[in-house]
Computed example of a mutant assay.
Amino acid sequence: MSKTYKVAIIGCGGIANGKHMPSLKKLANVEMVAFCDIELQKAEEAKAKFGSADAKVYTNYKEVLKDATIDIIHVCTPNDSHAEITIAALEGDKHVMCEKPMAKTAADARLMVEAAKRTGKKLTVGYNNRFRSDSQYLKQVCEDGTLGEVYMAKAHAIRRRAVPTWGVFLDEEKQGGGPLIDIGTHALDLTMWMMDNYEPHVVLGTSYHKLGQRENAANAWGPWDPAKFKVEDSAFGMIVMKNGATIMLESSWALNTTQVGEAMCTLSGTEGGADMWNGLTINGEKYSRLYEQKIEFNAGGVAFYDGEAENAPDLEMKLWIDAIEQDKDPVVTPEQACVVSEILEAVYESARTGKAIYFE
């Protein structure tokens, strides 16, 4: 019989309810035994919906870490508390999945990597877009050499008008930034994972706060409050890697454009290319002719049956628990996530100073 892993959820807000807890609930070898939130009602509601019969609720994460029976901690709090809670949990002999981005600052992210190495516990970061069907397929394409050497890539995280108006998304102190650190982080992680390239050389970035002060603005979740909009509404970066490859990173919550899409990448290699703009398309040259190949992910094809779509969060949680059970590296390693945070911070610093940021 395999071990049943006891999991505690710290932060019972939107991402915990939307991703972590529903997917963990489906795993036979996982039991959610503790729920912590600064708002007690949120913790109690999470326990009622997802918890074991004897699950406990807390408002202070430090009390959760005192329970020696807990194996795994999921950190689903605002960005500014990721490092503090994660490091304490690792030092408390717990494995940790921390929501993205890894931390508010690159320095904190590095401390998290060091804590994982020091304690020998497993640490991963919630970059769930790696686990989509199209992402999993494209990763295989990259690994089998179909694209050759990928030397030009674009990381896309563009919304036309979709500024999150709830929680702390607009609070720079708690989040560390706006769309770049919120959704740009997903696109950059996905792109670098496909390229298997984590050695940046230089970063040049720009950020803008051009639309955030508009009253009664059109927005997917209703008008934002300009007085609370303290972060950028768009940010862009050019990253040159040590091997000469280039990544163009684009992110926005509000931008006057009709070409929108997030957590996507475009890859250009010596043997072929790929993009996710209209589903996953592979392109290349064969027998002196250019071709485009659209990859089909619809599992249907039978009358009255559309197939069962693979759920990325479900796969993410399954493979995370498998990594612990089989004592292997998680799909998202802390070292990879740390480089993403370092690049994001370099984009912000370059935008602030007007200078290129070089990595040693």
Rank of each mutant, 00 (worst) to 15 (best):
67 D>L: 07
68 A>H: 11
281 T>V: 13
215 E>V: 02
306 D>G: 14
1 M>C: 02
263 A>N: 11
35 F>G: 06
287 Y>Q: 15
83 A>M: 04
244 G>W: 03
45 E>T: 01
53 A>T: 00
131 F>S: 06
70 I>L: 10
293 Q>R: 14
349 E>W: 03
81 S>P: 00
187 A>K: 06
124 T>L: 06
165 T>Q: 08
22 P>H: 05
145 G>W: 14
78 P>S: 06
86 T>Y: 10
30 V>R: 02
69 T>N: 13
345 E>V: 00
51 G>E: 07
236 F>E: 07
293 Q>K: 15
42 K>F: 03
252 S>W: 09
41 Q>W: 00
83 A>G: 04
274 A>S: 13
130 R>S: 12
231 V>I: 09
33 V>C: 11
225 D>M: 08
216 N>V: 00
113 V>I: 09
254 A>F: 12
154 K>R: 13
137 Y>K: 13
74 H>L: 11
311 N>Y: 12
120 G>Y: 06
36 C>P: 01
190 L>A: 12
229 F>S: 05
356 A>L: 07
186 H>M: 10
244 G>I: 01
124 T>P: 04
122 K>W: 07
315 L>E: 14
336 Q>F: 03
153 A>P: 07
304 F>A: 06
222 G>T: 00
70 I>P: 04
47 K>P: 02
90 L>M: 03
124 T>V: 02
266 T>Y: 06
282 I>W: 15
249 L>R: 03
341 S>L: 04
87 I>V: 11
253 W>Y: 13
215 E>Y: 08
29 N>D: 10
194 M>C: 14
208 Y>A: 09
315 L>C: 05
306 D>Y: 10
349 E>Q: 13
76 C>F: 04
53 A>R: 03
119 T>P: 11
298 N>M: 11
356 A>E: 14
325 E>Q: 11
218 A>E: 15
244 G>E: 05
305 Y>W: 14
236 F>A: 00
13 G>V: 05
272 G>V: 01
123 L>K: 05
24 L>F: 15
135 S>R: 09
309 A>E: 15
138 L>H: 12
15 I>F: 14
164 P>R: 04
20 H>L: 08
314 D>Q: 06
42 K>W: 01
358 Y>T: 08
316 E>T: 00
38 I>K: 12
150 V>L: 13
236 F>S: 01
316 E>D: 09
261 G>Y: 06
136 Q>D: 09
159 R>T: 00
218 A>V: 02
15 I>R: 15
337 A>K: 02
329 D>C: 01
77 T>Y: 09
210 K>Q: 14
230 K>M: 15
262 E>M: 10
171 D>A: 08
134 D>S: 14
355 K>R: 10
17 N>H: 13
103 A>D: 07
193 W>A: 14
295 I>L: 11
127 Y>R: 07
339 V>R: 10
149 E>I: 02
352 R>T: 03
18 G>W: 05
332 V>D: 09
199 E>W: 09
47 K>R: 15
244 G>V: 01
200 P>V: 02
85 I>A: 13
72 I>R: 05
195 M>K: 05
349 E>V: 00
91 E>M: 10
235 A>H: 03
359 F>D: 04
305 Y>Q: 06
